[in-house]
Simulated assay, not measured.
Amino acid sequence: REMGEVEVEEFLTDLATVGGVGVNTQKQALNALVFLYNQVLKQPFGTLAHLERSKKPQRQPLVLTKAEIDRILAVMEGTHQLMAKLLFGTGMRLLECLRLRVKDVDFEQNQIVVRHGKGGKDRITMLPQSLKPLIAEHLQRVKALHESDRRAGYGRVYLPDALERKYPRANQQWAWQWVFPAKSLSMDPRSGERRRHHAHENSLQKAVKKAVDLSGIHKPASCHTLRHSFATLLLQSGYDIRTVQQLLGHADVST
């Protein structure tokens, strides 16, 4: 009870400056002390205005060269290879790619509309010319699968509630189907309806990790590395940083 705000500040500052603990560890210690003083001792302390907080380390993202990307893609195949090529060719995040719907791929304008990206914002990114025939061929197979599902009494894709109510038949229309549907039907916990969701992120993550190992590249590359590499190669090719920022959907140019 004899220790108050000053002592708590000194202890937490010592954790950061001398102990070198991370941000989360210091926060846990702070939360524990706040609970102790507020709930147990009934002796709340002040604002800790002079507390020196732990700093989150600034790490440079891993970036691969074009040659390294080519080696990874060369040992991939099928839909996983197409997904990985899209991540590298568009700068999309993993879930942004998996949540693409047929209507979002604009072959005429050579662009992809990314819906509900980070921060809930839509944006437009490029559709590489080299991928257009591959995506078109892939969509033919997906459409055949969708038609097969419809004949079996399924084929209704998930839509957000507002759209589901406004356009009750849209969930069966081809334009609203996933570009990368799951291999099998599953029960939708929101509606209890059996339907085909989009592919699961773990599937592509594992495929990329396996490809990195097979390619002999000894770097901890992941799906997100393809996105960082896309941005870096654009900058090296002469694109201005503002354009790259917009393609990536970053609110802050420094990120």
Rank of each mutant, 00 (worst) to 15 (best):
G4Q: 07
E5S: 09
E5P: 06
E7F: 01
E7P: 00
V8Q: 00
F11G: 02
F11C: 06
G20T: 01
V23I: 11
L30R: 14
Y37K: 07
Y37G: 08
N38M: 06
V40P: 00
Q43N: 15
L51S: 01
S54P: 02
P57W: 05
R59D: 06
L64G: 04
L64Y: 04
T65L: 12
E68M: 02
I69Q: 05
I72N: 01
A74M: 08
V75F: 00
M76F: 00
E77A: 13
G78S: 08
T79A: 05
L82E: 06
F88A: 05
G89H: 05
L98S: 04
K103C: 04
E108P: 11
N110F: 01
Q111G: 07
V113Q: 10
K118Q: 08
G119Y: 02
K121Q: 07
K121S: 00
K132A: 13
L139F: 08
R141T: 14
K143I: 06
V157Y: 00
D161W: 01
A162L: 14
P168C: 06
N171A: 15
Q172K: 11
W176H: 13
V179S: 01
F180H: 06
P181Q: 05
K183T: 15
L185W: 05
S186C: 07
P189M: 09
G192R: 04
H200R: 08
S203Q: 13
V208C: 00
K210C: 05
D213M: 15
G216I: 11
A221C: 06
H228G: 13
L235Q: 09
L235S: 02
Q236I: 09
Y239W: 11
D240M: 12
T243V: 15
V244T: 12
L247D: 09
G249L: 10
H250L: 10
H250S: 10
H250I: 12
